[in-house]
């Protein structure tokens, strides 16, 4: 592999630029859909790009007394961890290194931004940031467990700890979406919490804590946080697609890319519709719902899969 090809792979396709386009495209779709649901026109397709460019050009301000190096590292680290996770997820028809246990690595890398998000609240010292940070940690302990439990149904059935293994198992047993529809829905609700989307945008509820941990961030750092969140959406949705619709295409085919895109768009529609439909829950309501209802349900679901 020569150096130009290597750089092309890393920076343009299927690397950085492609993922950026995918993330911002999904963001635009989300905003457009919600706008249409609410009877608005919605932004043009380049709006997320424009927003991002504008934020990168803005002055970067931090409150006095914050540790500049530490607060700058937080968005960079979370961005890096999501990007790394994305390199292990075979988005579209990209070939990725696969090994037993890469599932765990991805789950870990995807949860790093949530922890850093909490730290961001404490690092910037604003009152809203601290409350938002506390909330994000509380929320982390509920949806993360739910997401992992629900999606591990696919691990149980396929008896493999790698994404590729789960995908291969679906070629033999058929897509997991139908037999594990409950697992899928539970994982989706876990994902909503993970992405801090409505109705679970509790840590950044603007009528309560302004922008939560990100209140004091501006300019490039804020842009990186936002980008991280959008990339997390891509990562989370692709993970769901691989775990539940894995058999729908073979690697390296144009049709694979098309099917993948269609599924991605459909899932984004589902997320947008849920955001538009429900009011934001309170943090104690979320935790009660989670630990009393959703997590026991996903445990039962897994138990059923094991017995079967």
């Amino acid at each position: 592999m020569n150096i130009t090809e290597f750089l092309f792979n890393i920076l343009i396709f299927p690397g950085f630029l492609f993922l950026l386009a995918l993330a911002l495209g999904l963001d635009w779709l989300d905003r457009k859909l919600i706008a249409r649901f609410q009877g608005r026109v919605g932004p043009p397709w380049y709006q997320p790009w424009a927003d991002l460019l504008k934020l990168f050009a803005k002055e970067d301000i931090l409150p006095a007394g914050t540790n500049v190096v530490f607060t700058s590292l937080l968005p960079l680290l979370s961005f890096a961890s999501v990007m790394t996770a994305l390199f292990y997820i075979p988005i579209a028809f990209r070939r990725v290194p696969s090994f037993q246990g890469d599932f765990i690595v991805i789950m870990f890398l995807l949860s790093v931004p949530s922890l850093l998000y909490f730290l961001a609240g404490w690092a910037t010292k604003g009152v809203y940031s601290i409350i938002g940070g506390n909330r994000s940690l509380l929320q982390y302990f509920s949806y993360e467990v739910l997401f992992l439990l629900a999606i591990s149904g696919t691990i149980i059935t396929s008896n493999s700890w790698s994404i590729e293994g789960i995908r291969q198992a679906q070629f033999e047993q058929g897509a997991f979406i139908l037999p594990q529809i409950f697992g899928f829905l539970l994982a989706l609700s876990g994902l909503i919490g993970k992405l801090k989307r409505g109705p679970l945008d509790i840590p950044k509820a603007n009528s309560e804590v302004i922008a939560g941990p990100l209140t004091e961030f501006s300019g490039k750092k804020l842009a990186l946080w936002i980008l991280t969140n959008e990339l997390q959406t891509v990562a989370g949705l692709s993970l769901l697609i691989y775990c539940y619709f894995g058999n729908l295409w073979q690697m390296n085919k144009l049709s694979g890319f098309l099917i993948f895109s269609v599924l991605l768009v459909l899932m984004q529609c589902l997320l947008s519709a849920i955001s538009a439909m429900y009011a934001r829950l309170r943090i104690d309501q979320l935790i009660r719902l989670n630990w009393y209802l959703l997590i026991p349900l996903s445990l039962l679901h897994n138990l059923y899969l094991i017995i079967k």
Binding site: I34, Q38, A205, A276, R280
Partner: peptide, 16 residues
């Protein structure tokens, strides 16, 4: 009220 509880859809509808 709807805006404050994160239910932007009702906010948009009522203001329309």
């Amino acid at each position: 009220l709807a805006k404050n509880i994160g239910l932007d859809t009702i906010f948009m509808y009522t203001w329309r």
